[in-house]
Write a protein that binds this DNA or RNA. Structure first.
Length: 212
DNA sequence: AAGGCGATTGCCT
DNA sequence: GGCAATCGCCTTT
C-alpha cells in the first residue's frame, strides 16, 4: 500500500528545526522528500507531501546565486530555512527553501507535492476564471513548480519568511522514504550544468511533474 | 538605456 | 510537439 495521500499517519505540527536546513543543499533536498509542506492562510490551512525537488548550489552555474546576491535572490543567502520566491517567465512563481549557513547562497526548489489537506481550496486556486478543459485531478494540483506555488497560494509576500514560523512550515509526516525510493536525475529546464543529477524525486509518485 | 533570455505552463495544431 | 504570455536581472551599448 502506497502512503501517498493517506491520512493514517502520525503527522507532527511542529516545524522541522533550523538544524535540518544547516546542511549541504543536496542532503537537504533528498531529506525533504516525503516531508509535509504546511501553508497557513487567514481562511485555510494546507498540507502537502513533497515529492519532487531540485538542489541549487552556490558554485552551480544554473543557480540564481551563482553571480552573487541581488535584489531578487537575497533569500538564498539567508540562513537555511528561508523562503525564496521568484517570478519565472513573467507568469509563474517558484518557491525555494534556502540551505546552509547565512551567506552560503544555496536553496532547494520545490517542484511537486501530493495534496493532503485543503485539496478543494487548492483546486479553486488552480481553476482560475477562464480556464478551459476538465477538472484537475488531485495528483496534478501541485505538479510542477509554478503549479505548486499557485495551488498553495504562495505569492511574493511569502518571500523571506521562515519555514519554521506560523505561516510556512515543513513538518514530519511520520513516514519514511527509503534511499531506494529516491531517484536522482538532471534538473528540468536549465542549460547550464545540465549534466548534474540534482533533481530528486520519489520514484513512481503520481504527482511528479515528469516521470523518473 | 535597451534588449535578450530564463529553475514554466497551458492551449493549439 | 510548438509557441505565446510577460517580468526582472544581466549583459551589452
Amino acid at each position: 500500500m502506497k502512503s501517498h495521500g493517506s491520512f493514517s499517519r502520525n503527522i507532527s505540527r511542529s516545524p522541522l528545526p533550523k538544524s535540518f536546513y544547516q546542511r549541504p543543499v543536496d542532503l537537504v533536498a533528498a531529506a525533504l522528500l516525503g516531508k509535509g509542506l504546511w501553508v497557513e492562510h487567514s481562511d485555510v490551512k494546507l498540507l502537502a507531501e513533497i515529492t519532487e525537488v531540485e538542489a541549487y548550489a552556490f558554485d552551480d552555474a544554473a543557480s540564481h546565486s551563482f553571480r552573487g546576491p541581488t535584489k531578487r535572490n537575497w533569500p538564498m543567502f539567508e540562513e537555511g530555512g528561508i523562503c525564496y520566491v521568484y517570478l519565472i517567465y513573467g507568469i509563474n512563481l517558484c518557491a525555494n527553501i534556502s540551505t546552509g549557513e547565512k551567506g552560503r547562497g544555496e536553496a532547494v526548489l520545490l517542484r511537486a507535492a501530493q495534496p493532503l489537506i485543503g485539496v478543494e481550496w487548492m483546486r479553486q486556486k488552480r481553476n482560475l476564471p477562464g480556464r478551459k478543459g476538465k477538472e484537475i485531478s488531485d495528483t496534478r494540483l501541485l505538479s510542477g513548480p509554478g503549479n505548486l506555488a499557485r495551488g498553495l497560494g504562495l505569492t511574493m509576500s511569502h518571500n523571506g519568511l521562515t519555514f519554521f514560523g506560523d505561516t510556512l512550515r515543513v513538518v514530519d509526516l511520520g513516514n519514511t522514504v527509503l534511499p531506494s525510493e529516491i531517484a536522482r536525475t538532471p534538473r528540468i529546464g536549465i542549460s547550464q550544468s545540465a549534466e548534474l543529477l540534482r533533481r530528486y524525486c520519489i520514484v513512481g509518485a503520481p504527482s511528479l511533474s515528469r516521470k523518473g
